Computed example of a mutant assay.
Amino acid sequence: MKALVYDGPGKIDWRDHPDPVLQRDTDILMRVTKTTICGSDTHIIKGGVPDTPQGTVLGHEGVGVVQEVGSAVTNVVPGDRILAACVSACGYCRFCTAGQYGQCLNGGWALGHLIDGVQAEYARIPFAQNSVYKIPDELSDEQVLFLTDILATGYEVGVLRGAVAPGDTVAIVGAGPVGLSTTLTARLFSPANIVVIDLVDSRRKKALELGATHAVSPEEAHEVVNGLTDGLGADVTIEAAGFPKPFELAAALVRPGGHIANIGVHEEPATLHLETLWAKQITLTTGIPSGLTIPQLMKAIASGTLDPTSMISHRFDLGDMVMGYETFKNAAETDALKVVLSS
């Protein structure tokens, strides 16, 4: 088969790669129909995720059709349309039994990180009983593709862990795909204000299209948030960029007793200013998604409440994967958000 292979920092190649095979009775094989590129993939390519082995097929966001199932898999059969969650969950370790699939001791974020992923014609999906979901006939592959990661991440790690509530002022720092997914799903809780903060004008405009009440530059953030909250600060701040300055801005914007939810993938240290935060009684959360809300979000898409396809900026054939990466990497020039690749 053809696949996008990581050959070490700065090196990727779309080339022939061995077909996947079932390795355990809990595996399935999936023919990939659509996949997409994530910021985490670019972190790997830059060398920011050093435990990714050279020769790994990248990608952890994919939908497709079941080709073959292991003997222990009972939730899907060959021919089913499925989405594969970005995290693989064994279902029996101490973290899985607590619903923390992202911390699974036997899986977690494995696809496209520690094992071959889904930016390929075919993929092996481990622990399929807990890690894949059937796609209803009324939904297209594109409608559910982002449930595999960014929509679930924005909702679970940002909105739910940030404890967004009706009437809140929510500040989201970073308007890339994950920040925009957070904007979309935060609306489900009817906050009074959603303030999206980003350096790029086109992304601020997109945030307003997706439901933000305000979209501002970092330099404007304090004035806008303070003006909306009588100087108290945001009830919830969500860091969705993965760099020190955005994290420190999220911490500076939160009110006493508020929540800071970190989503961004960080490659370098950020300063936690405890000299100003120690007495503010804030809650700080981090993590990656479990995917357990995927069925819930799928119903919201089916009802028309959520439209993730509004984040698609570019479409390519699967064989144009390298071009897709170039487009995604140069988002400042291409206005790329989510790049979808189809077989």
Score class of each variant (00 low, 15 high):
102 G>N: 07
202 S>R: 13
171 A>N: 08
195 V>Q: 11
8 G>I: 01
213 T>M: 02
338 K>E: 10
340 V>W: 09
92 Y>H: 15
3 A>K: 00
196 V>E: 02
268 E>V: 10
104 C>L: 05
99 G>R: 05
47 G>T: 03
335 D>S: 15
150 I>P: 00
94 R>Y: 06
235 D>S: 08
301 I>L: 10
88 S>K: 10
327 T>Y: 10
277 L>E: 06
271 T>S: 12
110 A>V: 03
297 L>E: 08
174 G>L: 05
246 P>D: 03
99 G>I: 08
164 V>R: 04
202 S>I: 06
300 A>R: 14
11 K>H: 15
140 S>V: 02
230 D>E: 14
18 P>L: 09
340 V>S: 09
185 T>W: 06
227 G>E: 05
193 N>L: 12
267 E>F: 13
182 T>C: 01
177 P>Y: 08
316 F>I: 09
165 A>E: 14
188 L>G: 12
183 T>E: 11
272 L>G: 08
275 E>L: 13
317 D>V: 08
118 V>L: 09
187 R>T: 15
267 E>Y: 12
90 C>E: 03
239 E>K: 01
55 G>Y: 10
79 G>F: 04
64 G>H: 12
143 Q>F: 03
220 E>K: 08
220 E>G: 07
127 F>S: 01
47 G>L: 05
100 Q>S: 10
247 F>N: 00
28 I>R: 06
14 W>H: 07
18 P>V: 11
334 T>R: 05
95 F>A: 04
21 V>Y: 02
234 A>H: 08
289 P>H: 12
303 S>F: 08
217 S>K: 14
280 K>A: 15
98 A>G: 06
244 P>D: 01
93 C>H: 13
103 Q>V: 03
296 Q>Y: 13
84 A>G: 12
51 D>P: 00
159 V>Y: 00
173 V>S: 13
201 D>V: 02
196 V>C: 04
247 F>A: 03
46 K>N: 02
329 K>R: 06
276 T>I: 15
247 F>W: 00
312 I>S: 09
115 I>E: 03
157 V>C: 14
281 Q>S: 13
201 D>T: 12
7 D>N: 14
230 D>I: 03
78 P>D: 08
235 D>H: 15
314 H>P: 02
314 H>L: 10
330 N>D: 13
60 H>F: 04
201 D>H: 15
76 V>I: 09
212 A>K: 07
283 T>N: 09
230 D>W: 01
185 T>Y: 00
59 G>T: 05
53 P>D: 00
256 P>N: 11
288 I>A: 13
57 V>K: 06
290 S>H: 03
13 D>N: 15
204 R>P: 01
254 V>L: 04
183 T>F: 01
14 W>E: 11
185 T>K: 06
295 P>L: 07
338 K>N: 11
315 R>W: 05
175 A>S: 11
246 P>N: 05
180 L>M: 07
215 A>G: 11
